[in-house]
Design a protein around this nucleic acid. Structure first.
Length: 282
DNA sequence: AACGACGTCAACCGCCAGTAG
DNA sequence: ACTACTGGCGGTTGACGTCGT
């Protein structure tokens, strides 16, 4: 489903996100949070508009996104809520943990809508047929009755075939993604920064990430903030060799970005305390 | 094998509501 | 009260995959 990458007039990239862009976005948001989507791309070293970054994160990269087929229960819920609420996709998606409004909307348009319409048509045709049958019969036997209103047919032929085969807590996409990046995911951005600077001597070190309190009049010169970013980066880097261990032992899978953050960042950091309070990572 | 029709879904666009100054 | 900015939402697009002929 990849779109051909292109650029708009202002030089911002459009189209499909590359793995490298994803990696940058995940790395940045995992470390610094989404403090301002509009400003974020330039600090993260991305040639994307903030809106595009937000969309990519919210609909695809965010932890706990559930991928894969919708379960029967999910589809039933979507149909029921759509009947009540109409096209209020975000409200509907809020009732489906791990599903995004975009995903729900797409699934509705590509699958559920047709199914519901088809069943409505089938149902009304059936009612018509039943009525004409009733009329025909009634002409011979009894007077026409108004009690021929069938309830709405279920749009599904079966209701239990999916639920038993799908894992509702499937987070394999994120895990697979992180895994595919290998542990170099963490090291690439910081390549050379901390290697010989374990005592936080970060003068003139370039990186693709810039901390949110980085202040610069020249946005094109993206260097890590020496006060905040380097502190976090150093802490991060110093723990990178062993940060897998607790979660490998405890959870038996590669940690998601949120796990990485909690494992590696100093909890006494005021900035990240705020992030956690806002439950950004759940 | 080639081609067109159709389905899927990531991503874009424009609008709107909330908020800060 | 007004304006500018931002995040969020829903509608729509279009590239790519799949299927049927």
């Amino acid at each position: 489903m990849a779109r051909t990458p292109s650029c708009d007039k202002s030089g911002m990239r459009k189209g499909t996100w590359t793995a490298e862009e994803d990696r940058k976005l995940i790395a940045y948001v995992s470390r610094y949070g989404c403090w301002n989507w509009r400003q974020l791309p330039k600090f993260a070293g991305l040639a994307r508009c903030g809106k595009s970054c937000r969309l990519r994160w919210m609909n695809y990269l965010r932890p706990n996104i559930k991928r894969g087929n919708f379960t029967q229960q999910e589809e039933d819920l979507i149909i029921t809520m759509h009947k009540k609420l109409g096209n209020r996709w975000s409200t509907i998606a809020a009732e489906l943990p791990g599903r995004t409004d975009n995903e729900v909307k797409n699934h509705w348009h590509t699958s559920l809508k047709k199914r519901v319409q088809h069943n409505t048509i089938t149902n009304s045709e059936e009612i018509k047929a039943t009525k004409s049958r009733d009329i025909t019969i009634s002409q011979v036997t009894t007077p026409a009755s108004s009690q021929d209103t069938n309830g709405p047919l279920s749009p599904f032929s079966s209701s239990s075939e999916f639920s038993s085969t799908h894992d509702l807590d499937d987070m394999s996409f994120i895990d697979a993604f992180i895994e595919s990046m290998d542990q170099s995911f963490l090291l690439d951005d910081l390549n050379g920064i901390v290697q010989n600077n374990t005592n936080c001597d970060f003068q003139n070190q370039d990186t693709s990430l810039v901390s949110p309190n980085h202040s610069s009049n020249d946005d094109s010169n993206l260097v890590v903030d020496n006060d905040f970013g380097s502190f976090v980066d150093a802490y991060y880097e110093s723990t990178v060799d062993n940060f897998w261990t607790p979660y490998e032992a405890e959870m038996s899978h590669v940690p998601t970005p949120s796990h990485m953050l909690m494992t590696t960042l100093p909890m006494e950091s005021e900035y990240f305390s705020v992030v956690f309070e806002e439950d950004l990572w759940s």
